[in-house]
Design a protein around this nucleic acid. Structure first.
Length: 475
RNA sequence: GGUGGGUUGGCCGAGAGGCGAGGCAACGGACUGCAAAUCCGUGUACACGGGUUCAAAUCCCGUACCCACCUCCA
């Protein structure tokens, strides 16, 4: 085995190239990811970003970086207000219900919690502070129309457009946007004055009257609060590049903060060639997908594609992924059974896996290494090569842990005590049938033997003959 | 109009000048009483048209189609 010499390289979407990851502080990594606006049930697309950045978090930690990971939740915005009204409940109740759904979805996919998950509504003072600083520095202004709005002055910040490589002159002004008191149609709201039609609870006091934050300011304020004026990586979905991330960066830099050193954006999951948020229906919400597939299978499906590749979602593809993953689980089960308590603690991460992951989180290549090891492990198992099985099981487990795909991880909901008892009862019953079948086979009464196997299969119990005798499993 | 991305075998999905990632499916073989699982083997894939090169899926030019963003968006 050749030791790996690679270091982490990531595609920086601001530079539009793969760059070596050099943290601001040696040995540490700081990461900010735009989480979701909790306005409706999370679907597969929403959760992709959670899974992708969870893999990044795990890989950074595995690589030895002391990692601070902040992933926010936007719990106040126009859509939340509108949807809560439609649902007939308060905006904060609606936001919290959806937030709980999101947390459940993350948990079901073994998305590890970030270091901290700040809420926009919990950071109004920090946002006000930042807005005042921008006004002082001449990059923001309170609207002259008395609306209580405060806008960022795009023309005052010559670097505006740098993140997405656009010239201000080429940007279309929002067709739908109400220009209100804007000096330039491209100026964006830092603070939105309260309107009489909106719930009174959705506004906070400010120097410009009651109101609520604009969308972008929260991330600048929260990233600044928890990670400092400069931090390593900012992540989010591709659609956030503009305007959200462009505005975050403009506002932060205009306030004198260097902000993110690297930008990472995950690509889409589409359905029928369309962005998921446009396709309606609820068949793709996490709870409904989880009725058909296990969380670990869905996670495997997401992890097996590169985070910057578009994924065309289909249940057929998910089904294939699930079958592939079961191959890994089959090896784990056989290897564990063969080794008993004597499992491999001494394993080291395969260098090919490390190289793949260091190459801009090349999870597809990493998964290929995983399958290579599984095949080797199966061969070792067939040859009763216990030492190799032990080593390979250890390697496979390490790789799965980093990808968040270890079936033994308690996050997947290990069976509780009650299940143990049930398992024992079933085991005794099935074993007696297996004995009967063995007797029939001894007598070369194949019809009787197959009848028992079929009967068990009918009940969902699969019998597999192995050199060390038959085993059973429920599928 | 501006900006960015894509098109790879039956399917999913990597790669980025020479050597066919990997998975699923299919077919053949081994093992098995028969299966299942597992292992071994089998594929002349890179949207199209030109060009550069000893060598192109990969670089260049052009064409087609698809997608995203341009102040609601993972």
């Amino acid at each position: 085995m050749t030791p790996t010499r690679s270091t982490l390289r990531i595609y920086d979407s601001a530079a539009r190239e793969v760059r070596d990851f050099v943290p601001l502080v040696a040995g540490k990594a700081s990461l900010y990811v735009c989480g979701l606006t909790v306005q409706s049930e999370p679907h597969v697309g929403h959760v992709r970003s959670g899974v992708n950045f969870d893999v990044l978090q795990r890989w950074l930690r595995h690589s030895g970086y002391e990692t601070t990971f902040i992933r926010n939740v936007t719990d106040i915005d126009d859509k939340i207000v509108a949807k809560s009204e439609a649902a007939g409940r308060a905006w904060y109740e609606h936001a919290q219900i959806m937030h709980r759904e999101l947390s459940k979805a993350y948990a079901a996919l073994n998305v590890a919690p970030p270091t901290y998950e700040p809420l926009a509504t919990g950071h109004i003072p920090e946002m006000l502070e930042l807005i005042e600083l921008l006004i002082e520095r001449g990059h923001a202004y309170a609207a002259a129309d008395g609306s209580g709005d405060v806008y960022f002055d795009v023309r005052s910040w010559k670097a505006y457009g740098e993140l997405t490589g656009q010239a201000v002159e080429d940007m279309e002004a929002a067709a739908d946007a109400d220009p209100r008191g804007k000096r330039d149609p491209r100026d964006f709201a830092l603070w939105k004055g309260a309107k009489p039609t909106e719930p009174a609870t959705a506004s906070w006091p400010s120097p410009w009257g009651r109101g609520r934050p604009g969308w972008h300011i929260e991330c600048s304020a929260m990233a600044g609060k928890y990670l400092g004026p400069a931090f390593d990586i900012h992540g989010g979905g591709l659609d956030l590049r503009f305007p959200h991330h462009e505005n975050e960066q403009a506002q932060s830099r205009a306030a004198g903060k260097p902000f993110a050193a690297y930008w990472m954006h995950n690509a889409w999951i589409t359905t029928a060639g369309e962005k998921m948020s446009k396709s309606l229906g609820n068949s793709l919400t996490i709870p409904s997908v989880l009725q058909r597939f296990r969380g670990i299978e869905l996670r495997y499906y997401l992890v097996s594609a590169h985070y910057r590749s578009h994924v065309e979602f289909s249940f057929d593809a998910l089904e294939e992924a699930a079958v592939g993953f079961q191959r890994i689980e089959g090896f784990l089960a056989r290897a564990s059974a063969a080794l008993g308590a004597d499992q491999g603690w001494l394993a080291t991460m395969p260098p090919e896996f490390t190289d793949a992951m260091n190459d801009d989180l090349g999870t597809p290549g990493a998964v290929a290494v995983l399958f290579d090891r599984v095949r080797e492990g199966n061969t070792a198992l067939a040859g009763n090569d216990t030492a190799s099985v032990q080593r390979i099981l250890g390697e496979v487990t390490l790789m799965l842990d980093v990808l968040g795909l270890n079936p033994a991880d308690e996050a997947w909901g290990a069976p509780a005590g009650g299940d143990e008892k049930l398992h024992h009862a079933v085991d005794v019953l099935v074993k007696s049938l297996i004995d009967q079948r063995a007797a029939a086979r001894e007598a070369k009464d194949w019809a009787a033997a197959d009848a028992i196997r079929d009967q068990l299969k009918e009940a969902g119990v699969e019998i597999a003959d192995s050199p060390s005798g038959p085993t059973w499993s429920v599928n």
